[in-house]
Write a protein that binds this DNA or RNA. Structure first.
Lengths: 155, 155
DNA sequence: GTGATATGCTTGTACCATGCAACCAACTCG
DNA sequence: CGAGTTGGTTGCATGGTACAAGCATATCAC
């Protein structure tokens, strides 16, 4: 039997994805070409900054996308000077990816724009709810990650 | 100056979108063809069930996507017998879309599968956190919707 | 009522993100 | 050294999307 709480979360997550998709399009369209990061590019760059210089395949694994996708994305980002490739001294086949200063700067700007948006959305929340929301989101993500991990190993 | 709470929410939302994208692919791939709803189809069908018989353009507006996209999606769903079109008595140009029983059933199944997944993720949460999470998500969506609405009107 | 304009929808075209498979290059191990 | 493995790129197919053009119907002005 379905638990209304879980259904409620499911419904709200669906809503969130809907608007998220829309926001992505909305937020980058108006802000000109040089400042904009495509959705995929943003996610990739964010990861890259988090992890430091990383191999392409590693990045693909972490992001749970195909290596070919990452390869193309990186090509794109590289063309805009946001990431740089360098040879991996330990393995001639591998490439090490790192974000350039410009890439970091752009990521930072994008993040700040998003944070401002979020700040606007939660502006009138009680402060406790804000931190609580962050905490629960983090925990939820944690749970999803764990589940994905299990799935992956068992398959 | 950036508020760490907002940045934290931003970060977690980013994570959530990442895994959400992945989950979509993951969750429908294994469950065979007849049972599966493509991501866009799911969202569309869900809306349609929420709103009852609706015009195509209305649906497009609500979903914030182009009418052509909806047109194609509907064509797809119709081909699978999940939605039906009928002429609008009040306007010969318009089509009224409604979910078929089969569509509703499939949507229900999909929703339940998702709810089960969510239940698994939050299985070990204190019950209070679960309801709190649902509440905050709903509130956040509310805020996003309000903001989008403002944006739309002012542009 | 007839023509001009607006509206609802479909179709053509293009673009991006993605996965899979095929491929090449470099590494590793026997 | 040769066989197999791994890192990465590229070709191809698919799906979702937007924009523009087109068609059918409705509405309004006269």
């Amino acid at each position: 039997m379905p638990d209304p709480t879980h259904q409620g979360i499911e419904r709200e997550l669906t809503r969130l994805f809907r608007s998220g998709q829309h926001m992505h399009r909305q937020m980058q369209a108006p802000s000109a070409t040089p400042d904009s990061l495509e959705k995929a590019g943003y996610l990739l760059l964010a990861r890259l900054v988090e992890t430091g210089p990383t191999r392409l395949t590693t990045l693909a694994e972490v992001a749970c996308v195909d290596a070919s996708t990452v390869s193309r994305q990186v090509g794109h980002l590289e063309a805009h000077g946001l990431v740089a490739r360098s040879a991996d001294a330990a393995d001639g086949r591998a490439v090490l990816l790192r974000a350039t200063d410009e890439g970091i700067a752009l990521l930072t700007r994008t993040r700040e724009a998003r944070s401002r948006f979020i700040a606007a959305v939660v502006a009138e929340w009680p402060p406790g709810d804000r931190t609580e929301f962050g905490r629960l989101l983090a925990r939820f993500n944690e749970g999803v990650a764990r589940w994905s991990h299990i799935r992956q190993e068992s398959s």
